[in-house]
């Protein structure tokens, strides 16, 4: 099946975000990713988009989120960009440390990094790059 290339620019709005998620997940499902990868992609997509809208753009409807996604039968690749101030990954507290277990921050990033095969933060944290291979490939 041909590689799908999707491009979206949308305001910081959860309703629009759901439409984008649906379109991307439909392409992943059409390429028969294994169940584990499908779950991982859905989770990381949710966390990445929420981070861009809520923590990056601070829910400002004047600011956009840009998503570029490529889905082939062997790989899912996505770039999510926001227009916020950015952040330094090394300054986000480790949520698995005993003293941070009850704190709210850092858990989404940890899940992204655990479930995706490649994760990179560019442009001072305003650009999240994620990749995951399809394990169903022969």
């Amino acid at each position: 099946m041909k590689e799908a290339k999707l491009h979206f620019v949308f305001p910081s709005d959860y309703v629009r975000m759901r439409d984008v998620q649906r379109a991307i997940v439909d392409e992943v499902k059409a390429r028969h990713f294994d169940d584990e990868s499908l779950f991982a992609i859905q989770l990381a997509l949710e966390e990445g988009l929420i981070n861009a809208i809520k923590h990056g753009n601070k829910l400002d409807p004047q600011k956009n989120v840009t998503v570029d996604c490529r889905v082939s039968s062997d790989r899912f690749v996505i770039d999510i960009r926001d227009q916020g101030k950015g952040f330094d990954r090394t300054e986000v507290p480790d949520p698995t440390r005993e003293e941070n277990l009850e704190r709210p921050s850092g858990r989404g990033l940890l899940l992204i990094e655990s479930y995706m095969h490649q994760v990179r933060y560019d442009d001072h944290g305003r650009h999240l790059h994620m990749e995951r291979a399809n394990q169903n490939q022969p």
Partner: peptide, 16 residues
């Protein structure tokens, strides 16, 4: 079948 880090945060708040 699906939950987010926000849902995990909610469970922690409820626990407290």
């Amino acid at each position: 079948d699906h939950l987010s880090s926000s849902a995990l945060g909610m469970v922690i708040d409820i626990r407290k």
